[in-house]
Computed example of a mutant assay.
Amino acid sequence: MSRWFPHVTVAALVERDGRFLLVEEHTVDGVRLNQPAGHLEQGESLPDACVREALEETAHRVAVDSLVGIYNWTQPDGSITYLRFAFACRSLSEEAGRALDEGIIRAVWLTREELLAQQERLRSPLVLQVVEDYLAGRRYPLDVIRHYE
């Protein structure tokens, strides 16, 4: 008997001057926009995973400031359920020339309005929802997350 498990992911929401750091990436559905995001790895804390994914996908070193929200979303075909932890982060520096993860085309800075204008290109509805929640002021302290090994 097989067991069902959600895919635990993290996402970095980085805002600078009204623009949000996103990645343009190749997916099975074509080129899509997403926050820097990825899967939690064994032994990793959620904030550490967020920092790692942001660096790997955008070449930006980030600091995690707060939790924006926890999102549960199932792909329309029902094949995968994601449990996403989205974090408000700030960019500390950029490693110019750093190779990005396989499948990542480039990092881009877009406004909310630019995201609204290209909703069909978003990897999931979570991309815009995280931005909306951030703009609504949703922030939770990091100490709501406990990491035990």
Score class of each variant (00 low, 15 high):
residue 23 V to N: 05
residue 27 T to V: 09
residue 46 L to C: 02
residue 30 G to P: 12
residue 57 E to S: 14
residue 23 V to R: 03
residue 29 D to V: 05
residue 30 G to W: 01
residue 16 R to V: 13
residue 31 V to Y: 03
residue 12 A to R: 09
residue 21 L to D: 03
residue 14 V to H: 03
residue 26 H to E: 14
residue 50 C to H: 07
residue 57 E to V: 10
residue 11 A to K: 13
residue 54 A to G: 06
residue 39 H to E: 13
residue 42 Q to N: 07
residue 23 V to S: 10
residue 24 E to W: 00
residue 25 E to K: 15
residue 20 F to E: 07
residue 29 D to F: 13
residue 18 G to Q: 07
residue 17 D to Q: 09
residue 48 D to C: 01
residue 19 R to E: 05
residue 20 F to L: 08
residue 28 V to W: 01
residue 45 S to M: 07
residue 38 G to A: 05
residue 53 E to F: 01
residue 52 R to S: 04
residue 43 G to I: 00
residue 51 V to A: 14
residue 34 N to Y: 00
residue 17 D to T: 11
residue 46 L to N: 05
residue 16 R to S: 13
residue 35 Q to H: 11
residue 47 P to K: 08
residue 30 G to R: 12
residue 21 L to W: 02
residue 43 G to M: 01
residue 52 R to D: 06
residue 10 V to Q: 09
residue 24 E to L: 11
residue 11 A to T: 14
residue 27 T to P: 11
residue 11 A to S: 15
residue 19 R to W: 00
residue 34 N to G: 08
residue 26 H to I: 12
residue 37 A to P: 15
residue 26 H to N: 14
residue 47 P to T: 04
residue 20 F to K: 10
residue 10 V to M: 10
residue 18 G to C: 04
residue 10 V to N: 04
residue 27 T to A: 12
residue 43 G to K: 07
residue 46 L to S: 01
residue 47 P to I: 11
residue 11 A to E: 13
residue 51 V to G: 08
residue 22 L to H: 05
residue 37 A to L: 08
residue 45 S to L: 07
residue 36 P to Y: 00
residue 13 L to I: 11
residue 57 E to C: 11
residue 34 N to I: 03
residue 16 R to A: 12
residue 54 A to L: 02
residue 24 E to H: 11
residue 21 L to H: 01
residue 40 L to V: 15
residue 9 T to D: 13
residue 21 L to C: 08
residue 36 P to G: 09
residue 41 E to H: 02
residue 57 E to M: 08
residue 35 Q to F: 08
residue 48 D to L: 04
residue 20 F to M: 09
residue 44 E to C: 00
residue 28 V to H: 13
residue 42 Q to K: 03
residue 53 E to P: 13
residue 15 E to H: 01
residue 35 Q to S: 08
residue 14 V to C: 03
residue 50 C to N: 13
residue 37 A to I: 00
